[in-house]
Each structure stands twice: as structure tokens, then as C-alpha cells.
Nucleic acid binder design. Structure first.
Lengths: 218, 218
DNA sequence: ATATATTTTTAGACTAGACTAAAAATATAT
DNA sequence: ATATATTTTTAGTCTAGTCTAAAAATATAT
């Protein structure tokens, strides 16, 4: 049996190992989980014993295939529930995360597969992130951060890095949605702020914003 | 903050106090929760301290208004999710209970109210039980057990006492559904089995079955 | 009314998951 | 290369919820 806490640690390790180095450090994991390093160490040991992770003292942790499978199953559930909340219950994209964090732990294969069907097999969640299929396969999208985009090119918005309500509301205010076309006009060398054109409307976004918006080259 | 375990104890106390004496004994509660009496005692103390229950040593436990409110909120969630599972995801009425036991603990007022609307404000769950409204009001239905019905009268099936998959499947096999009209033909004094007519079809059910089917006089 | 049986509570121990404080290992800087 | 700083682990403690075994209260039977 896998506990709710174990699931959350596995999910955190999975996400951390995608954004950055392969192996996840105890401190980073502790920070992601809002606990102390000693707690993270304990849990890493436990996950290793249960076969979800590989771990050598002082060397950080990596998920095993079994651990990755667990992570992808949770991510599938999380993202399908997000689609449900937005498409069927009228939530906005900045309201869904917290509730989906709870719903992702419901255990019932039939539930999640019927939900998938009810939603007509969506490929992406409301933030543009891909939904793993029933076997845990998740298409890899070659995405670029706005902060790494090239002047003169046109991109489409395909997702966010930060799904906090604040950031998502900022995007709404500036009429940036999933699928929005974004043209890179000018990058200010001094503070790395970027002038972009969206819906024929030019404005400048800060580097902190640019580091949290994923684009795909058109 | 109220924990998942506390919620489950409160729900159990609520259900036990409806079916039987007003105050719930430690042993009955322990049995309902599949734990030992000592664990039930500990939890009863804790619920009393938190204001959800009133308790005097050796005298059993009763929910306070605050405790009842918690119970009704959980029951509302449980039953709404059951409707969702059957109406939208194609579950059968014997498959929903276990999943609803998990879903009932999701905390999000917006979620449950939007779900209520999405389902078009249902009044009953798939087993015929009434759904409490947003303020915790639950209509009281004057229901009769089949085992207490009177020969010669015609009733409608309005719910079940036992929602185990086995019992619900028995009902399906015999074409007894919610709303089915049931005429009481004859009660066998020896073993209290009852001959009934459903859909113009006569057959006999045992007393154990009769004690788990709720009817309403037509 | 007293003995016996049942129910309930208490006392003490266990596990999961968290914490603090200190020790050990690794990384960085001069 | 050695001293210093940072990261990670260990050791020991805490809480929630469970358990067993024994004690205390209540109920039942003669």
C-alpha cells in the first residue's frame, strides 16, 4: 500500500527531476514539500526500500521505473480532474490546482478511465500541460521559455511554469491565453524584459514573467 | 482543522444514532469503524474536546449541532458524488459506494456546489437516499421496511438499508429498482419470508432481504 | 443481594510522519 | 591544502491513531 504522503513525495521528485539535474537533492525536495531536510531523508529511505526510488547517501535521489509510473498516474489524474473542473464545472484555470491536488489521490481505475472518456479523451489540461495516457505515456513537447525566445519569431503559448493564481490572473489581465500567438519584438539587455505583441497589442513583460511562460515556435 | 479520521467517526456516529437508540455505544462505534473499543474511546474524547460530540464516561456519545453539521456535509458530498458516478460516468448503483467514500472528503465548497448544479440539483442518490441541501437540511421520508409492510397493500421501493454490492446485485437480478411498485401478497409466519408481486411477477424473498429494502406506501 | 458477565476505560506500546539539534560528509574559498 | 561553509544524515522527541492487556464500571442472572 502506498500512502498519500508517499505519493506526494514521488510526485515532487518527478517534477524536480524534470526541471533541472537528473538527481534530486534532499534540500530541494524538502523545500518543494515544505518540510525539513531530515524529514525528506527519512522519506527517501522509505521510498528506496519500497522500490520507488534509488538512493545513495549524500548523492540525491532518482525515481525507479516503478516510481515514475506512480508519478505519471498521479499526474494523469491531476490533469484530467483539472479539465473536468474547467470544462464541466466552470472553474477558471487559476482555481483548479488546489482542488486537483486533492482529487489526484482518489484510487479507482474505473473512475479515472470513465472520466477520461466523459471528457472526450483530452490531450492537455487547462494550463496546456500534456495528459499522460492510461499506460503512463506522456508526449514530450519541445517547449521554449519566453525568456529564451528569439527576437523576430512568432510563437504560440502552450503552457505555464508557475500555476499560482497570481500569475494566471496576470496572464488573464494581459489577454494571454493558451494558443495565443506571441511575436517577440525586442529584448532589453539591461533587465531582460521583453517587448511582445499579442492580439496586435504591444507591451513589455518582465524577465520573471518571461521565465514562467512556455512557448512553441510557429 | 478536522482530520479525515475524525470525519469518518462523526459520520459513523451520525448513522448509528439514526438507526436505533439516540446515544451511540463505544462498542457499536468501534464495530462500525472496524477498530477496537479503546480506539473508539480515544476518538470520542477527542471529538468531545473539539465540540463535535457530547460524552459522559460509560454513557455513550451524541453529536452536537456542530457535529451534525459536519456529518450532513459529508453525506451531501457522498450522495452527490454517487449521482455523478451513475449519471455521468456510467457506474452501476452497486459500484459507487467505495469511490464515494473517498470523494466525500474532498474539501472545496465551490466544487460541491458547482457539482450540485451540474447534476441539476438532484434530490436523491442512486440508492434512493435523500441529499442534504447546502444548509444541511435533509427531508425526512416516512419509510417502511419491507419486513414491516402489510399484506394487501401496494408500495414503492425508495431505498436500501444495505448497500453492499451483493445485495444490490440481488435486487438487480430480481428486477427490483428504485420506484418499482411492490404488492405484498402473503407473509409466511414460519420464517417471515414474504411473497411479493413486482412487474406482474410473483416471487418470495427471505426475511433478511425484507429487512434491507425500504418502501413507501402508495 | 451477591456473583458473573459484559462493556468501557485506562495504561502503556507501536508506526507514520514530522521536528530540533548535533554529527558527518561534501563543497567552496582562500 | 587547509579552513570554512553548506548539505545531508543521525539521534532522539512529538502527535495522531492504532493496538493489547488489565482495571473499573455497568448490566445480568441466580
Amino acid at each position: 500500500m502506498i500512502t498519500l504522503t508517499e505519493e506526494n513525495y514521488i510526485k515532487a521528485i518527478f517534477h524536480l527531476s524534470l526541471q533541472g539535474k537528473e538527481t534530486v537533492s534532499t534540500n530541494d525536495l524538502a523545500e518543494a514539500m515544505n518540510t525539513k531536510a531530515s524529514s525528506a531523508t527519512d522519506m527517501i529511505k522509505k521510498l528506496s526500500e519500497k522500490g520507488y526510488a534509488n538512493y545513495k547517501k549524500y548523492q540525491g535521489v532518482i525515481l525507479t521505473d516503478s516510481g515514475k509510473k506512480v508519478a505519471l498516474s498521479i499526474i494523469r489524474k491531476h490533469r484530467l480532474w483539472e479539465v473536468f473542473l474547467v470544462d464541466k464545472l466552470g472553474f477558471t484555470w487559476d482555481e483548479v490546482h488546489e482542488v486537483a491536488e486533492q482529487l489526484e489521490h482518489i484510487k479507482s481505475p474505473k473512475l479515472i478511465n470513465q472520466l477520461d472518456r466523459f471528457l472526450d479523451y483530452p490531450k492537455h489540461d487547462p494550463h496546456g500541460d500534456p495528459i499522460p495516457d492510461i499506460n503512463g505515456n506522456m508526449p514530450i513537447v519541445e517547449k521554449t521559455l519566453l525568456s529564451q525566445a528569439q527576437v523576430g519569431h512568432i510563437y504560440s503559448c502552450i503552457g505555464v511554469n508557475d500555476s499560482s493564481a497570481e500569475f494566471l490572473q496576470y496572464l488573464d489581465t494581459n489577454n494571454i491565453q493558451l494558443g495565443s500567438e506571441i511575436e517577440i519584438m525586442y529584448i532589453e539587455p539591461f533587465d531582460k524584459s521583453i517587448k511582445i505583441k499579442v492580439n496586435n497589442n504591444e507591451f513589455t513583460v518582465s524577465n520573471s514573467v518571461a521565465k514562467n511562460l512556455y512557448l512553441k515556435k510557429n
